[in-house]
Every structure is written in structure tokens, then in C-alpha cells.
């Protein structure tokens, strides 16, 4: 519990100064509709990510060390960060001050995330079948899976595991309250559309590009 004792009856006379609005505040999703859009967007990004891992048609170049579009890896943390801020990081296991409602919402999100993660694991097993032909015989006995795709699929499962509780929370939480100190900015649907267009354009460019280096000079091999 934080704050003053429950027996205080006199309202405090302190006035609350409006907080400075940072760019992070400006891209924080506050409505349920916006959070649902970005939750779906993040799930789509993870599907694209695994597609680029298991299928060269979705990957840059095709060489073994250039199989994931760089921008896709950039877009994933950007969208995840937006969702985390939009849900006030309630799913953080070491969150310092959650009240009873926050704890109930967090626990409910973890309960929903668990069966969904099981589905992801089943999908990962199916994807594993695509990678198995690349297994190589070991020096003594058995087959060793040395494919880079296996590392990618492991990373993919980890991304889902981290994301699913936040995604469940973002999907279910009601609209945040309008701040008691209103601040201006773009309307949320317009802001989401602009950000979405920027991310989608960058991903498309990344998929079409010959290499991940873009306009930067590529390093010598």
C-alpha cells in the first residue's frame, strides 16, 4: 500500500503540476481499441519473423547470416514497448507498486497467456519439422541440429513467452482514464495509422532489399 493513512479526512491542498509530455508519452496507447490494434500488429510481426526464419522468400538475401530482416527485429521491440507502456508495465514480475486491481489484472493475463503459449509451442514443433532435414550426423551417434533456424525458432518462442501476458493484458484492459491534466497531440487512430504505415513501409523495404545494410557501407567479409 502506498500513500497516506486511510483515516485522513482533510483533502490535501497540494496542486499537481502537469507532467512534461515526452515522445514516449505521445506514443503510449491509452484506449482499448488502440491497444488491440497494436496487439494484433505485434502478433503479425512475430508471424513474419518466423516466416523469415523458416522460408528464404521472406528473408533478406538468403545467405545464412542474413536471414532475418533487420527492421523486423527493430519493429518488434518498438511495438512491444508501446504495449508495455500502454499497460503500465503491469506484467513486470518485479513491479514495485501494484494495487489489488493491478494484481488481479496481471494474474488474469498470465492465466490467459499460459494456454496460448502451449499453442505457440505446438506451432514451433510443427516448424521444427521444416528444419529437421538440415540436421547433421554427430561425431559419435545421433543427429545434431545445428541449423540457425533452430536458434531462430527458440528465440521466437521466447518472444511469444515474453509478449503473451502483455498482449492478453493489452487486449482486456479497459480504456485508460483521460488524464486529469489533458495534453494535446494527434488523435490516437491517426497516430496509430502513421506509426503503422512507417513500420509497414520499413518492413516492406527491408524484405525487398538485397542486404540488411541499406545505405550503410557493407562490412568486408
Amino acid at each position: 500500500m502506498r500513500g497516506a493513512s486511510a483515516s485522513v479526512h482533510t483533502p490535501a491542498t497540494t496542486t499537481y503540476e502537469p507532467a512534461e509530455v515526452t515522445w514516449r508519452d505521445a506514443v503510449t496507447t491509452t484506449s482499448r481499441a488502440s491497444r488491440r490494434r497494436w496487439t494484433a500488429c505485434y502478433a503479425l510481426l512475430l508471424v513474419l519473423l518466423v516466416a523469415s526464419i523458416v522460408d528464404d522468400r521472406f528473408a533478406v538475401g538468403g545467405a545464412d547470416d542474413e536471414r532475418m530482416p533487420l527492421i523486423l527485429i527493430v519493429a518488434v521491440p518498438v511495438v512491444f514497448g508501446m504495449l508495455r507502456r500502454g499497460t503500465r508495465r503491469l506484467t513486470a514480475l518485479d513491479h514495485p507498486d501494484l494495487d489489488e486491481r493491478d494484481i488481479e489484472a496481471r494474474d488474469s493475463a498470465y492465466r490467459i497467456a499460459f494456454p496460448l503459449l502451449v499453442l505457440v509451442m505446438i506451432a514451433a514443433l510443427a516448424l521444427l519439422a521444416l528444419s529437421l532435414p538440415q540436421a547433421v550426423p554427430g561425431p559419435r551417434h545421433g543427429w545434431f541440429l545445428e541449423s540457425q533456424a533452430l536458434i531462430g525458432i527458440g528465440l521466437w518462442i521466447a518472444l511469444w513467452a515474453v509478449y503473451l501476458p502483455t498482449g492478453a493484458l493489452a487486449w482486456r484492459e479497459p480504456d485508460a482514464l483521460e488524464s486529469e491534466t489533458q495534453h494535446g497531440g494527434l488523435p490516437e487512430p491517426l497516430r496509430d495509422a502513421l506509426l503503422g504505415l512507417a513500420l509497414a513501409g520499413a518492413i516492406a523495404l527491408s524484405l525487398l532489399a538485397e542486404s540488411n545494410t541499406g545505405f550503410l557501407p557493407s562490412s568486408p567479409r
Binding site: 494495487d99 486491481r101 482514464l177
Partner: peptide, 25 residues
């Protein structure tokens, strides 16, 4: 009636101010 903001009430009872809003809604 008591001229309290959500933040002031939430500080007094030890919850997040969003929780006060969710209660009211």
C-alpha cells in the same frame, strides 16, 4: 463533494488513481 481529485483519493486509500477511475466507472 469533498473537492478531491482521483489522485488525492487514491493516495489516501493506497491504490493507483486509475483504480479509482475504474471503480467510479
Amino acid at each position: 463533494e469533498r473537492g478531491l481529485s482521483r489522485q488525492q483519493l487514491s493516495d489516501a486509500v493506497g491504490v493507483n488513481y486509475q483504480t479509482i477511475g475504474y471503480l467510479e466507472r
